[in-house]
Each structure stands twice: as C-alpha cells, then as structure tokens.
Design a protein around this nucleic acid. Sequence first.
DNA 1: CCGCTGGATCGATAGCCTTCGATCCATGTC
DNA 2: GACATGGATCGAAGGCTATCGATCCAGCGG
Lengths: 117, 117
Amino acid sequence: MSAPLQLEPKVKRPVGEPCCEPVVYPEVDRQRASRLAEVAKALGDPIRLQLVDVLRQHAGKVCVCELVPLFDVSQPTLSHHLKRLRDAGLVDSEKRGLWAYYYVLPERLDDLTAWLG
Amino acid sequence: MSAPLQLEPKVKRPVGEPCCEPVVYPEVDRQRASRLAEVAKALGDPIRLQLVDVLRQHAGKVCVCELVPLFDVSQPTLSHHLKRLRDAGLVDSEKRGLWAYYYVLPERLDDLTAWLG
DNA sequence: CCGCTGGATCGATAGCCTTCGATCCATGTC
DNA sequence: GACATGGATCGAAGGCTATCGATCCAGCGG
C-alpha cells in the first residue's frame, strides 16, 4: 500500500540494544515467490504428494485406473486432485483409447528443488 | 475404506491393449506423505515462502520489526503467517526484551528437499 | 444401435485460510 | 504508576478447498 511515512523516530529505542542493526531485503522477488508457492501448494496435500511420488518412480505414464484404488477417496475426488496437479504444471495427461495416462513434468519440481537447495 | 470386493472381472478388457500392465504401489507411506505435505503447505503461500527465504539467507535471527515492513500486509496478518510457519516446525522464535526474533529450523526443509532430490 | 466402461465435470456442503481492525499483554521509559 | 511500544491473539468476513453423489461424455463391444 502506501509507505509508512514516518518522519521522526516514534520512540527513542527503549533499550540500549537496538532491535535490529542490518536491514533485510526480500531476495526472491514476488513473482518467483508466487510461482514457487504455487508448486508448494500443489504438493501441500498428502494425496497429491503421493500421486506425484508414484508418478515419479514410474517414469512412464500411469493409468488413472491404477491410481484410483491406491487411495481412500472417490474417483471424482482423485480426478480433482489430478486436475490440480495439472493446473500447477506438475503433471500432464494423455488419453489413449478409453484410458487416461498421467506423467510427471519434472521442470516445475526442479524449480522448487533449486530454491530449497 | 473397505476393499472393492470384486470377484469377477467386471468387463472383458475392451481393447487388446490392457489399460495397465504393472501394479503400482504408493512408496512414500501415508504418514511421511502427511508430514511432507504439511511442510509443503506451509510454503504454499508467497508471503510465507518469502519469509522463509529471508530467514534462510540471514542465518542469524531476524527481528519481526524488520519483517513487517517488507510485505504489504498488516502486522496481525504477518504474525499469523509466522505462527503457521512455527506450527509447521519450519521456524522458531525467541523473545528478547521487547522484540521477537525468528530463525529457520532447517531440518524440516531438509526432509522435503530429500524427497524432491 | 444399445449398453457398458473409464474418467471428467457439476452442484452442494462443510471445513479451512487469509485478511483485517480491535484488543490484549509484556516490557521498557519517564 | 502512567504511558508508549512490539507483537500476539480475538472475532468476523469472504474466498478457497476437499469431498461426495449424480451426471455427462467419449470409446469400445456386441
């Protein structure tokens, strides 16, 4: 919003030790933070995290009909989670005949990994 | 919850190509997935991610009074985010005189990093 | 063409999550 | 003791999320 606009020091530091000597800046700009947070949020659900985990170790594509019985949620719920992962750019899918196959897009994960490392 | 209890194959596979040949298992157990997802969820907000970022590069402890002006949210809101990070075990705080200083607890981050790597 | 199947979508419900202003508390100054 | 300050907490408002059953749609089999 608007700057604090503080002309004179509101207080004479109560104690000899000042609260903080060096100024601290953000570092990761707001945009990158938003992108990273989006990825983290997509992983912020146990089911989605396990989905990504399964898809990661199966480097190939995995059929949804194999994923559904792994979790204690309904098929529409799982479909919803897969959509969230797709929207976040963490996975993609491909329809073959009657079935849908999902696979990981590692780039987005790498982004978060880089920040963490 | 209960097993599907499916005695006979519901269908004769419609197409020659079966939907999925190998069985897929979870891998990360539910408990670990929950712990990891908790960390990811804590990072799933741009402000919190930037907070962790600032605290990480400042290996030392940082005063809240330095953090507040970095973001366009009110002081109670920032306090709320710091609490979420504390609850997730990503940071801890220490009160010194009138001020509170926050610092990162790297272990939880390392947990997620290990899973990603 | 009819019926079945895998999977996505819809609509509703209930529980979180973010945000704020107001308030409270502990500490320190005068 | 009276007062200011940094920061946490409270309560409310509004938006987002997970979950489900019901439904829809596209392929395939017969």
